[in-house]
Amino acid sequence: MRWILVAVIVLATTLGEVLQAIGMKRHGEIHDFRPDALGRVVSTLVRCRYILAAIAAMAVSFFAFMALLSITELSFAVPVTAASYIFETVLAKYLLKEHVGWKRWMGVLLVAGGVTLLSF
């Protein structure tokens, strides 16, 4: 059961974060952090399809994570989701056309490796 939940979490997180990145890049850079300006940003974002799909995916991932936390420890639940780092970086390079140089690849691999070690 726990591994089914892990698979659901990894897939939904990857999908959710990539969709979030696409939606936010289409929205454009946020400059103004005053509450009323942020309110306007939120009201624009709730009409963006990418953001809505991202929130749906994040919600699936969140509830699956809550279910996983109820049957396992946080120290198991957090590290196993590290697999999404690799998937997301690959998608960032090929789908979002980000420049992923050696520093970023090494960085992501070190982070994913480190997160895996934390579960021991």
């Binding site: 974060e17 936010m24 960032a92 979002l96």
Partner: peptide, 9 residues
């Protein structure tokens, strides 16, 4: 908000 300008990677 962070993703509105920074790379996902």
């Amino acid at each position: 908000a962070l993703l509105s300008w920074a790379d996902l990677s």
